[in-house]
Design a protein around this nucleic acid. Structure first.
Lengths: 291, 291
DNA sequence: GGATTTATCTGACCTAAGTCAGATAATATG
DNA sequence: CATATTATCTGACTTAGGTCAGATAAATCC
């Protein structure tokens, strides 16, 4: 058959190439070459170290220097020496730069909104986009430790609770479960790790420590559209590493038989089933692992 | 919440921009600027008229001319005057050009294959890509009349039968249904129309004529990932237009109650239910429309 | 403390891409 | 048949993007 899987992927490639081109063209409407717009965008999204931006955008140092000068000439950015390394420079947006950055953001948002408004099944479309973004970006998925009260963490936890609500026969009410103290999932006792894919959190795990040599693994979640990419394994591995760094000797966790992929993962990676060790109403399986 | 739908779309944008950029970079490995590669590709995929290529790639006439010269200098293409309009030129690939075109195709295919091989759920991923390609490319979906024995038509019919097999309670066996004669769905008696989106057929409908002033609508199918975009309506509209052009006064069709979206569409667009007019074992609903 | 490495900047240079104004020849229009 | 239009080509020009070889100053290494 002619319309094999590759034909479908290549059709997808044609469609998104046209879309990407259209977005670039709309960016040019602001009277600035794309290179300068990209640098402005990198600074606007929090990258301030010039070397970091250069690396992120794979730019030659000469070109980078000229792009920074042109943005400075427009009074969109200011550069100052790096506080601890005087060879380096850091760039920040001026007030005008923030406005200009926001104008680019608005162009992107407008395209996204227009697409959503016209889409017949917006939620399905978003799921499809998430799945593809995760598949294409799998080599760029990074595990980061963040504050469990940070918005990325709160987003992950919200999705995690929503998934338990869907999967547990009688639903899930977070207030009936013991919600760990944020401080127990932060330095120095514990950690909260998220998997970030192209800027969006797609998975998380918590290491809840007490200061002693026993700690608990909590809130392991992977977005449905990002499963099968080995992210859970990476998160668990990172959590164990964090535990060792905190001199933790024994890890425990509780889970529910509805979460069979998770239970399979635990069994395959050295966890052994133990007796119930708490009175939380939801879990029915309990595991332990010695580090 | 920060991670609203727009964040997801923009993450998707970042991921595919990187992918598109990587493909472009791999194309540069063949030692030719992208512009020339695009023209070569356009010629390779069947566009021979220079003006048509220029329009398709939105190129300035001067730039186009120079790109053609550079491809001629490499002996990859040959240009000759247009057979009926001596102002125009047509370009075709030489033997070396065909090889070079194939080399680009292989690069694309290799990327697609690599993606599929690593994907955890390849079929889901392909569905996601189809859905996004249809949503992004909805303005480029074209209705074309083709030979029902053409591969695009056979693909549509295969997908149509597969869908009936899934949706009918007792499955569907095409040999038990009367398969229309190809000649009845071609000029001058009938037509076979397909909806093409970025090169891939995503829907079809047949107009089966007998030479008289009554004809039948057959094989209305829209790919699952392309529903809600109004393609069925456009196909039915095009079929009615084709019927009028063939002096047909009355259209009939049979369908099955499992195909409720189709039945809804017929009811909403002027079709009225009539008595059974054939002994095909599958249909249980019969409609008619006077043009 | 001297040698080496690193980050940035500057000038010179290059290619790709695209624009613009004619020139030419053929076709279409009235 | 004169005029307008169309398709292509050519030369002149511009901008964007990127490379390369030093220059400079700071940090790091031995």
């Amino acid at each position: 058959m002619r319309y094999d899987p590759i034909s479908h992927i290549r059709r997808f490639g044609r469609a998104v190439t046209i879309e990407v081109g259209a977005l670039d063209t709309s960016f040019l409407g602001r009277g600035r070459p794309l290179g300068a717009a990209r640098v402005l965008n990198a600074i606007g999204t929090g990258r301030s170290d010039v070397a970091e931006i250069r690396d992120y955008l794979s730019l030659d140092s000469g070109l980078m220097s000229r792009l920074l000068r042109s943005l400075e000439d427009e009074s969109l950015i200011q550069t100052t020496p790096h506080p601890t390394d005087a060879r380096r420079r850091v760039a920040i947006l001026t007030k005008a730069g923030q406005q200009e950055f926001q104008a680019y953001e608005n162009l992107s948002d407008a395209r996204a909104t227009a697409l959503l408004d016209r889409a017949p099944h917006a939620d399905e479309l978003l799921r499809a986009m998430d799945m593809i973004a995760s598949a294409l970006g799998r080599d760029r998925i990074a595990i980061e430790a963040i504050d469990p009260r940070h918005e990325a963490a709160r987003y992950c936890l919200g999705e995690y609770y929503a998934e338990l609500q869907r999967r547990f026969e009688n639903g899930f009410d977070v207030s009936r479960s013991r919600d760990p103290d944020a401080a127990d999932m932060m330095q120095p006792r514990g950690a909260f790790l998220v998997a970030i894919s192209d800027g969006l959190p797609i998975g998380c795990v918590g290491l809840k420590g007490t200061g002693g040599d026993v700690a608990e693994i909590k809130r392991l979640w992977i977005d449905q559209t990002a499963r099968g990419l080995g992210i859970a394994k990476r998160l668990m591995h990172a959590a164990e590493t964090a535990a060792r760094e905190r001199s933790i000797k024994t890890l425990r966790l509780d889970t529910n038989s509805a979460l069979h992929e998770a239970i399979k993962l635990y069994r395959e990676s050295g966890w052994v089933e133990i007796d119930r060790f708490n009175d939380d109403p939801y879990p029915d399986h309990f595991f332990e692992k010695h580090l």
